[in-house]
Computed example of a mutant assay.
Amino acid sequence: MDFRLSDEQKLMIEAARKVGDRFGLEYWRKQDAAKAFPKEFWSAVCEAGLCGAALPAEVGGAGLGMFELALVVETLASCGGGATVGQLFMINPIFGGVALSRFGTPAMKAELLPKIVSGEINCSMALTEPDAGTNTLELRSYAEAVGDGWRLNGRKIWITGVPDAAKMLVVARTKKLADCKSRSDGLSMFMIDVERKGLTHTAIDKVGTRTLASSSVFFDDVRIAPGELVGTLHRGWHELLDVLNTERIVTTAALAGTGELAIKLAVKYGNERKVFGDKPVTSYQGLQFPLAQCHVEVEAARLLNHKAAVNCDMGLPYGSEANAAKLLAAQAVSRATERAMQTMGGMGYATEFHVERLWRDCRLFRFAPVSEEMILNYVANHDLGMPRSY
């Protein structure tokens, strides 16, 4: 196994670092305070060709893979954006790009993928529902066949980036559950306009990831055209899983970058801070050891995520690695940001020192986009052969 990076991969990292350094910690602090979508940052990401790292060259992408995309996301997150950088890549090159490049019609690919790669349009994905949550197979939004299309009714919650998106990947039932052979039967994906009659959304106030809005979304007789079906009618469940596993990779990549940044900020502060005599506070093992432990844990999660990304690019199974890496990363970065704040003492609680934002933002990923408990269920069932517990 060769861990050396190619020249092309090094160039991708260099390009990402240049963009990330242009939009450093102060930029993100201001965007967070204003609860404002990072338009300038995302435009620069797209102009540098980073959004399309894993998308086909024929639509303007780089034609590389998920490993290169993970390297890009890690780097951008470590420059200041933190965990929310992963969400930007989720909603655009994953929910928009991967879903369409793998399952979209030729017409969809030709029309939408170049616009996603260039940043002309943003995307979102409407999956989670109030009464289903993690139990996706219990979702109730229903797209009823009407003529040659569908009419959608239902509600979604915690949908990211809706006010700034032009397109929404919607997951809905297209068969009543009573008519399905299994719970995974009768699910379909559609790519629809956010600005459409019958589609409304309201913001959810939240503690972190405030540069990307989270919304409740309501569908009231929303018309879906026949050309907006993504993938196979009634057979969208396994196609959806393919999209969601790539989502795990960019989530973990952003968390790895966040952990790296938090530890870096803590060490810099601690190396300069003196309390008892002339020795910096980081000379004491009571502060050294926890930060060193966090560093080791973040690196372990990063490497497992790299394995998941490489397996994905090689066409090998990667779901177990992607989910396990996300579990490790979310826990490790939660500890890393907490420990960074503790190292900085009272200043770790001040917005001007940035760690509190990283701490608030990364907390989301202990239960999203999939909870720790459900990942452990997956590992127990699929990897260890234990009986299903739920």
Rank of each mutant, 00 (worst) to 15 (best):
residue 6 S to T: 15
residue 11 L to I: 12
residue 14 E to S: 08
residue 18 K to N: 12
residue 28 W to I: 06
residue 31 Q to G: 03
residue 32 D to G: 06
residue 36 A to Y: 06
residue 36 A to M: 04
residue 39 K to W: 06
residue 43 S to T: 13
residue 48 A to S: 10
residue 48 A to C: 07
residue 50 L to I: 05
residue 51 C to Q: 09
residue 51 C to H: 13
residue 53 A to S: 14
residue 57 A to H: 14
residue 62 A to L: 07
residue 64 L to K: 09
residue 67 F to Q: 10
residue 70 A to Q: 08
residue 70 A to S: 14
residue 72 V to H: 04
residue 79 C to Y: 01
residue 83 A to Y: 00
residue 84 T to C: 00
residue 85 V to I: 14
residue 89 F to R: 00
residue 91 I to E: 02
residue 97 G to H: 02
residue 97 G to E: 10
residue 102 R to P: 07
residue 103 F to V: 09
residue 110 A to H: 11
residue 112 L to Q: 07
residue 114 P to I: 07
residue 115 K to V: 02
residue 117 V to M: 02
residue 120 E to Y: 10
residue 122 N to E: 11
residue 122 N to W: 10
residue 124 S to P: 05
residue 135 N to S: 13
residue 137 L to F: 12
residue 137 L to P: 09
residue 139 L to W: 03
residue 142 Y to C: 07
residue 148 D to V: 11
residue 149 G to M: 11
residue 150 W to Q: 03
residue 151 R to L: 13
residue 155 R to M: 06
residue 157 I to F: 10
residue 160 T to L: 03
residue 160 T to F: 00
residue 163 P to D: 02
residue 163 P to R: 04
residue 166 A to I: 10
residue 167 K to C: 02
residue 170 V to C: 03
residue 173 R to G: 08
residue 176 K to T: 03
residue 179 D to T: 07
residue 181 K to M: 12
residue 184 S to T: 08
residue 185 D to I: 09
residue 188 S to E: 05
residue 190 F to M: 02
residue 191 M to L: 13
residue 193 D to P: 00
residue 193 D to M: 01
residue 194 V to Y: 05
residue 199 L to N: 07
residue 207 V to M: 13
residue 207 V to A: 13
residue 215 S to F: 02
residue 218 F to S: 13
residue 221 D to R: 12
residue 221 D to P: 09
residue 221 D to K: 12
residue 225 A to D: 05
residue 228 E to C: 00
residue 229 L to I: 02
residue 230 V to G: 05
residue 232 T to A: 08
residue 237 W to F: 15
residue 238 H to R: 13
residue 242 D to R: 09
residue 247 E to F: 09
residue 249 I to E: 01
residue 249 I to V: 04
residue 250 V to Q: 00
residue 251 T to N: 08
residue 255 L to P: 07
residue 255 L to S: 03
residue 256 A to C: 15
residue 257 G to C: 01
residue 258 T to I: 01
residue 265 L to R: 09
residue 267 V to E: 15
residue 268 K to Q: 12
residue 273 R to Y: 10
residue 276 F to W: 12
residue 276 F to G: 06
residue 276 F to R: 11
residue 278 D to S: 11
residue 279 K to T: 11
residue 282 T to H: 14
residue 282 T to G: 08
residue 283 S to M: 12
residue 287 L to Q: 11
residue 293 Q to T: 12
residue 293 Q to H: 14
residue 294 C to R: 10
residue 296 V to C: 11
residue 297 E to F: 11
residue 297 E to Q: 14
residue 303 L to Q: 15
residue 304 L to G: 08
residue 309 A to Y: 01
residue 313 D to I: 03
residue 316 L to A: 15
residue 318 Y to S: 05
residue 321 E to K: 10
residue 323 N to A: 13
residue 324 A to I: 13
residue 325 A to Y: 00
residue 327 L to G: 10
residue 332 A to L: 11
residue 333 V to K: 01
residue 334 S to V: 06
residue 335 R to L: 12
residue 336 A to M: 08
residue 339 R to K: 13
residue 343 T to G: 07
residue 344 M to C: 07
residue 347 M to S: 06
residue 348 G to Q: 04
residue 349 Y to Q: 11
residue 350 A to F: 04
residue 354 H to A: 04
residue 355 V to M: 02
residue 358 L to P: 01
residue 366 R to D: 00
residue 367 F to N: 13
residue 369 P to M: 02
residue 372 E to K: 15
residue 379 V to D: 06
residue 381 N to L: 13
